[in-house]
């Protein structure tokens, strides 16, 4: 009986599924997303929430993978203090 270490087996599974996702046709991805009720091409669609837009508090929080002052500010580090009354930029 084969006993697979849990983390190794899990990573193997994730890699296999990820490769399937990479290889899947664009049509299959879009069809499945549409079946779920999302319309990625429509204005205001939440399909790309977290990808191209997010809640403001998530845009300006420090990246979980970057710490310290050496982080390059490319949109995932803490934002500048906003003057009172300044309207936020669109997300």
């Amino acid at each position: 009986m084969m006993t697979t270490r849990s983390d190794l087996g899990f990573e193997r599974l994730l890699s296999a599924i990820a490769q399937d996702l990479i290889d899947a046709s664009e049509e299959e991805i879009l069809t499945t997303v549409n079946e779920f009720g999302l319309r990625p091409g429509m204005k205001g669609s939440v399909a790309l929430f977290g990808v191209t837009f997010a809640l403001r508090r998530y845009i300006h929080k420090p990246s979980a993978f970057r710490t310290g002052k050496s982080s390059i500010n490319v949109g995932t580090t803490r934002g500048r203090r906003r003057p009172k009354g300044d309207t936020p930029s669109s997300t």
Binding site: D7, F10, L14, A18, A24, P40, L48
Partner: peptide, 18 residues
């Protein structure tokens, strides 16, 4: 493309499970 981003979102959510 947007289709690429949809695919990458699913992959990211998959990998983030680990």
């Amino acid at each position: 493309t947007e289709a690429d981003l949809l695919r990458l979102k699913v992959i990211a959510r998959l990998y983030a499970r680990g």
